[in-house]
């Protein structure tokens, strides 16, 4: 078995999602090659060579791969596919854009956003927005897979793989990269933030949310709220985390003065680490929290801010 991993990178370095995909690939087993496609992407290739467990880095450095256009990049991957039993990529917008195109070009099915490797042909993935987990098996000769980054750990980076160039350019002329604008805002986007700190009814009013803002700015976190806080008029609805609001799954979720109604839990239960600060020891939020602090938030939050 040999595996090709299409890397997610910014030309100079790798994105973490690549490292987690390598971990998933190593669970399948076999040789792992990394494909770096891009325009002026030598830096990323060097970074990839350092990932433990990688045999070979293949670099397709050409202007036609700028912006990882799906048509050209898929054609590139297809041209290399005969050597591999598995083709993988992180389930980023790039991976999700390119790999299904690769699969259909090879006349095989694809697995999206897997969260577990059972065996070389069997994987786990969520369906119905995470409300169910399916174990699925492929009969295809080549397995095409995108991997959910948060479900796997980061691969070590003490390897030294060889780097080789793929020179043939696949410019299909179907699409042209016309620009990119990086989302910029003062506030970190709730759904993509690594850390989210949310306030509930216990915040008592909208002014008190500034306490959370201060903590958030120190942590680089986004500020969210429970529906109770939104309904009470403390904050606008676009800050709502929950069944009827935004679904978040950050590395760290800090719930402040939130009782933990199931509607709220539905929006944050997939967070990696959950912290709850609430003065009511019976609040349901403690049932899902990794760490609970039973304390008055008006004492605890300023303390937290100071300690950071």
């Amino acid at each position: 078995m040999s595996i090709l991993v299409l890397a997610e990178h910014d030309n100079t370095g790798l994105k973490e999602a690549t490292l987690t995909t390598i971990t998933a690939a190593s669970q399948i087993g076999g040789d792992i090659d990394v494909l770096i496609a891009g325009d002026q992407c030598a830096g990323a290739a060097e970074a990839a060579a350092k990932i433990s467990g990688v045999s070979r880095v293949r670099v397709a450095d050409n202007a036609c791969y700028k912006g990882l256009l799906a048509e050209n990049t898929a054609a590139l991957v297809v041209s290399l596919s005969s050597e591999y039993s598995h083709i993988m990529a992180p389930a980023t917008t790039n991976g999700k854009n390119i790999l299904p195109r690769v699969a259909a070009s090879l006349d095989v099915s694809a697995f999206s956003d897997i969260i577990g490797v059972v065996s070389a042909d069997t994987f786990k993935r969520t369906i119905y927005a995470g409300n169910a987990i399916a174990t699925v098996q492929s009969e295809d000769t080549i397995k095409v897979i995108t991997v959910r980054g948060t479900a796997f750990s980061l691969a070590e980076q003490n390897g030294s793989a060889s780097i080789g160039a793929v020179t043939e350019a696949h410019d299909l002329g179907l699409s042209t990269f016309a620009g990119e604008s990086v989302a910029k805002s003062d506030r970190v986007e709730l759904t993509s933030a690594g850390i989210v700190i949310s306030g509930g009814r216990g915040m008592q009013n909208s002014e008190n949310f500034s306490m959370l803002e201060k903590v958030a700015s120190k942590l680089g976190a986004a500020v969210g709220a429970s529906r109770a806080a939104v309904d009470a008029g403390f904050v606008p609805n676009d800050m709502q985390v929950g069944q009827t609001g935004k679904i978040v799954a950050p590395d760290l979720y800090i719930a402040v003065g939130i009782s933990g109604a199931i509607q709220h839990l539905a929006g944050m239960k997939d967070s990696k680490v959950i912290v709850a600060i609430n003065k009511d020891p019976d609040a349901p939020i403690f049932q899902v929290a990794d760490y609970g602090l039973v304390d008055d938030l008006f004492d605890a939050v300023p303390q937290l801010e100071q300690a950071l």
Partner: peptide
Amino acid sequence: KIKTLKVESPNTRQSGEIVGSVAALLDKL
């Protein structure tokens, strides 16, 4: 070409530990 072998409910989260102070909390994190 894809067979669904099994469909399960996701694991429910287990409650963790109660920490005594902000300092202890930060240390754990």
